[in-house]
Design a protein around this nucleic acid. Structure first.
Lengths: 222, 222, 222, 222
DNA sequence: TATGAATGAGAGTTCATTCAT
DNA sequence: AATGAATGAACTCTCATTCAT
């Protein structure tokens, strides 16, 4: 690289710009975690020690920033699932996955609002798929081991996590731990030997699209 | 005896006014059902073919109208539970109760937002209790018949319904019927013989209070 | 030393923002001067060539802007009183003070509404006191010279100004100058030798509090 | 009068209608006295035990009712002045007039708002004149007795009363009696021997018109 | 005729987004 | 590139006045 770089600005992202992006996402996580997506972008920007304008330089609008936050969360889930793929006990791996997801949401109202579909956005899809691939393997392993009913899919797990998050959204603040009661019941439903499921599951694509559709109806950006 | 009668309405309400009140609640149900409680009172009023002022004559504010809508829904649930108390098959009664609740929420985003706690209000408590009393009996009957695990309570049913509603909120519009898949799984979790539940349930009062607290954090009336 | 400096403005305020703030206060003075505090903040903002939102960026609400306007007026009075303290003729200084106050109010319905107590606010008190200190000296000087009756206080002057303003409020627009007629009569009442005053005056604090109380009853901010 | 009166309805006012009119004015006096003209016509009507509609049957709008109230007040003043015309001591008569007016306003915020010009209306004029005629005589008597300066008129008295009322509006609630202090000073200004008045007074007509103009600017009926 | 329900323009305030500095 | 000031549509709620019952 020549030292005359002023001549060629189009580098992907200047170092401080990249840093600001991360600052913003971190601030957004903090703020959204506490007050949900109802929080102001002004608040997020100031939490990051930046101006609103800067936020808009990095993210087209509030939803995009929210999506970025959500993506990071999903990335963390992805990573965890991949770890769990190498676990010894396939059933425990499934349980651990649920517990990890519960742990995440219990800390973060933004995550809950995301998983409950109040606020996701189109650009979200890639990460979504990335997370579901290993989850499918995790489920398959458990099914191969005969500890999870055959007719259950990764998208079912996604749905069940979301339902549990809905509870977390309401009860976790006042009664942390309560969610474990319903997690236990939910896990019962995954074990083999239950009544046949009357309706086929969504595939990953459908699940994503469905959440999309919902949010579009729910939130109208100005 | 309607549970509302303790309220002792100061005057019987003029015939047209009573009709408009109903019109407003109906309109509110329609509008809130489609667009959630984010919808404007203006919209509700116009859906009812009335002016905003009229809405404000009947309801002190948006929350009160929302509460009225929610109360009607809860009343319908109450009534249904009481019917089911006389059913022959106690398990089927429980299933029917879930299906009724699902049917209701599937039609109505307002109901879902109510059950998910985004928008309930203090005055709501009496109805809430009225609905839970017979539900406790329903659970007891099923437990006496040995078809529901002993450690499950009415408040658990409430929580599970709420979780299923969260799914309805997202998926029902695009995939009506999908919810039956997860209802089936959920019901598995109620059957006797499952793993012990690691955490005690909330009692009815706690459940109500918890939903209250949540909503207070989420929605700030002006 | 300006009396405002204790306030310690967090930041020096960007140049354009500072200008807009002044524009707003100026516009507010103009608009409130003509139409009183009943005028809309929308109107004020547009008079300033700005949007409402801008007004709300600078002032938390209408009252705060009104207070800012009122403070400027009181500051002008303060300054004038201080000047008059050095005048040669103590009686003429008192007269000049009244005339200055009349001149001010005659131009400005906002000032009148302030002095008549329709719209003052808590934060206003410091300025109020700052204005009354030198006024007390002015009165004392006149009493030492034997041209004002001994039992009269600065708060009396305040009250009399207010009463004259009430007249200005009604008559000044149509009959500018008329107020001088009643000012003359009022001044007669200040001269030594009159009938004893049957009731003690308020002190400065009481006067302020009284105006406060009144306004609180009259105006209810939302 | 024939007993067949149903045949001829166009009598000036049916007895109960007349009674309702009085009920309304009485209620308006009560309500306006306490809360000023900011009070709702609904409130006035209910205070009278009637519906708003009835209020509108008797008075074209809020202002007209306010005017009716004001008229009664002025009538009471008129009557009192006429009484005082026969008093022995012409100076005391003037003093008594002021005291009567102060007494009235001290009880009634509506009166104050009327006399301060916040809320009078066109139809008011006749009563206004009726009140001023005897007042002129009262002043003349005092001047003939040499106890009031020659260049003072009835309209001056009106103006001074109004100014004192402005004080009452602010201070009377918290400091009843304080007004007597300023009444004393005001009366000093009326005694012969003062500095010449630099501006001629308004005549009654002008005074009325001036108050009119003011109010038109101040209050904009919708 | 009396009632009180209905109306709707308007007020104060918020906040996502734009844009001048 | 970063800032934060400006914008204005939108939202909730009030109340003088009208009108159906």
């Amino acid at each position: 690289m020549s030292p005359h770089e002023n001549a060629a600005p189009p580098r992907p992202l200047r170092k401080d710009a990249a840093r600001n992006r991360e600052l913003l996402i971190a601030a957004a996580r903090t703020v959204f975690a506490q007050r949900g997506f109802a929080a102001t972008l002004d608040d997020v920007a100031h939490e990051a020690g930046l101006g609103v304008g800067t936020a808009y330089r990095h993210f087209a609008n509030k939803h995009e920033l929210a999506t970025a936050v959500a993506q990071q969360s999903v990335d963390r889930v992805s990573a965890r699932v991949r770890e769990l793929l190498t676990a010894d006990d396939p059933w425990q791996a499934v349980v651990d996955f649920f517990e990890f997801a519960m742990e995440m949401q219990s800390q973060d109202r933004g995550v809950r609002e995301t998983l409950t579909g109040s606020y996701v956005w189109e650009e979200f899809q890639p990460q979504f798929n990335v997370a579901f691939e290993p989850l499918e393997k995790l489920v398959q392993q458990a099914q191969d081991a005969g500890v999870v009913r055959e007719d259950v899919t990764a998208s079912d797990i996604g749905v069940l996590v979301m339902m549990l998050c809905a509870l977390g959204e309401i009860a976790d603040y006042a009664h942390p731990g309560l969610i474990r009661r319903y997690l236990t019941m939910t896990l019962e439903g995954l074990k083999p030997g239950g009544a046949p499921l009357p309706v086929p599951p969504l595939d990953t694509e459908q699940l994503f699209t469905t959440i999309q559709k919902h949010k579009t109806a729910a939130v109208r950006p100005r």
